[in-house]
């Protein structure tokens, strides 16, 4: 019968050493920025990371498919969290359209759609013919009125087609807010400069989809590059489906397209 040796094989010194090593290694493991690095997340827009970014040769497109939106408000929540948007201001929002048999249109957007549309409207006293949700965000106009009117050039179109705001240059005159036909801009009460949706430019440059696109459970928000012939937006734009833009008569040439938007959508 083998008698187990009860005495420890490790002396006290080596035991303390191991504990210390383990503690240091564990601490390092905790503080090391693992997973926090966005580049660790798998690439969502193909072709951004593996090649040098040619800023002058990009064509990104955003498509909102109204027929897919269920008004859950996830996109609004994601956006608010991504940018810490102050209450009462909206970089993106979701509207609820209700169309009666009399052709009357009823639109509402409580809290910008942040809470999701969980209950039907009860204040409409006629039979409903149609109802749908319309997500709204920056139209990234190619002929952007906001860029034209900015007196200090704080709002500009980047070479890759994004309308952005340089918050260090903006004087907060709000002229761009007046000029934007889509009302996607607001004066941030904290920074006192103008803010708006950027299609998550900081994410796109890292090969990630805009926050609202990533969380959309139904694929109502689509984003991609026209330089990638496998992207969904490329194939939608290439196909025969009808796409529209908002307020075409304004001559702003938006890069934001709507699929399935009724003519009542403004």
């Amino acid at each position: 019968m083998k008698i187990l040796d009860p005495s420890p094989k490790m002396n006290r010194r080596s035991f303390v050493k191991n504990v210390l090593n383990g503690t240091i290694a564990g601490s390092l493991y905790l503080v090391w920025p693992m997973g926090g690095d966005s580049l660790e997340i798998p690439e969502q827009i193909p072709g951004i990371r593996d090649t040098a970014y040619d800023i002058h040769n990009q064509a990104f497109v955003f498509i909102v498919d109204i027929t897919r939106c269920i008004g859950c408000g996830s996109c609004c929540v994601a956006d608010k969290r991504e940018y810490n948007v102050p209450d009462g201001n909206y970089r993106t929002w979701v509207e609820r359209y209700v169309k009666g048999f009399s052709d009357q249109i009823y639109v509402d957007c409580p809290n910008g759609g942040l809470d999701g549309y969980q209950h039907p409207r009860t204040d409409i006293d006629e039979d409903i013919r149609d109802t749908f949700f319309v997500p709204k965000l920056c139209n990234m106009c190619r002929e952007a009125p906001c860029v034209q009117v900015c007196p200090v050039g704080a709002t500009f179109i980047s070479p890759d087609g994004f309308v952005l705001v340089d918050e260090k240059r903006c004087v907060g005159c709000a002229y761009c807010i007046q000029a934007c036909p889509y009302s996607v801009r607001f004066l941030n009460p904290v920074t006192r400069v103008v803010e708006k949706c950027t299609w998550c430019y900081h994410r796109v440059r890292k090969g990630l989809l805009p926050a609202c696109v990533e969380v959309c459970p139904t694929g109502a928000r689509k984003f991609g590059s026209m330089r990638d012939d496998t992207s969904e937006v490329y194939n939608i734009l290439k196909g025969p489906g009808v796409l529209t833009v908002l307020k075409k008569e304004m001559g702003t040439w938006p890069a934001l397209y709507y699929k399935g938007a009724r003519r009542e959508v403004v």
Partner: peptide, 17 residues
């Protein structure tokens, strides 16, 4: 909103505005 930056309009004006 940022009156301290008002001189930007004179120093770096955007000609399109």
């Amino acid at each position: 909103g940022r009156p301290e930056r008002n001189l930007n309009m004179l120093l770096t004006p955007s000609p399109s505005s």
